[in-house]
């Protein structure tokens, strides 16, 4: 019986541990993303040299992204825990999902990274 109780306790602990790991780490306040206009700017080299990338987050989960001088393109976003997920919408059909892990999210600063170690730092305009 003790063994059974021990197994049950161990399973419960394991479950909690797994759930904790599945939710990721720190929870961030997503309101920071879209408050104050929700426009973030970062400098990235996306193939044509360093460019200022403007991302706009809206409270309804939509947004746009574009380099300066370019035409904005739409995406949807979700923030669950520290996982920031984008679905960049292709007009002809199809989406481009992108998942990032948020490391910093404050009123004025947003830092997230992908699974390949690419880190993007944004500041709010």
């Amino acid at each position: 019986m003790k063994r059974i109780l021990l197994y049950i306790a161990a399973a419960a602990m394991a479950s909690l541990a797994v759930t904790s790991c599945g939710l990721g780490g720190e929870d961030f306040n997503e309101e920071f993303l879209y408050s104050g206009g929700g426009e973030w700017v970062s400098t990235q080299d996306v193939g044509d040299g360093p460019q200022r990338i403007h991302d706009i987050f809206r409270a309804d989960g939509s947004g746009t992204s574009a380099a300066e001088g370019d035409i904005p393109q739409a995406f949807t976003w979700t923030l669950e825990g520290d996982r920031l997920s984008f679905e960049h919408i292709i007009g002809m059909g199809g989406t481009v999902p992108k998942d990032y892990t948020v490391t910093t999210l404050t009123e004025t600063s947003l830092v997230y990274r992908d699974n390949y170690g690419k880190t993007i730092s944004c500041t709010k305009l």
């Binding site: 879209y34 206009g37 706009i56 947004g63 904005p72 949807t76």
Partner: peptide, 12 residues
């Protein structure tokens, strides 16, 4: 401004 942005796709 957000309102001035192009019409957005349906949010998830």
């Amino acid at each position: 401004s957000p309102a001035q942005q192009a019409p957005q796709p349906s949010p998830p």
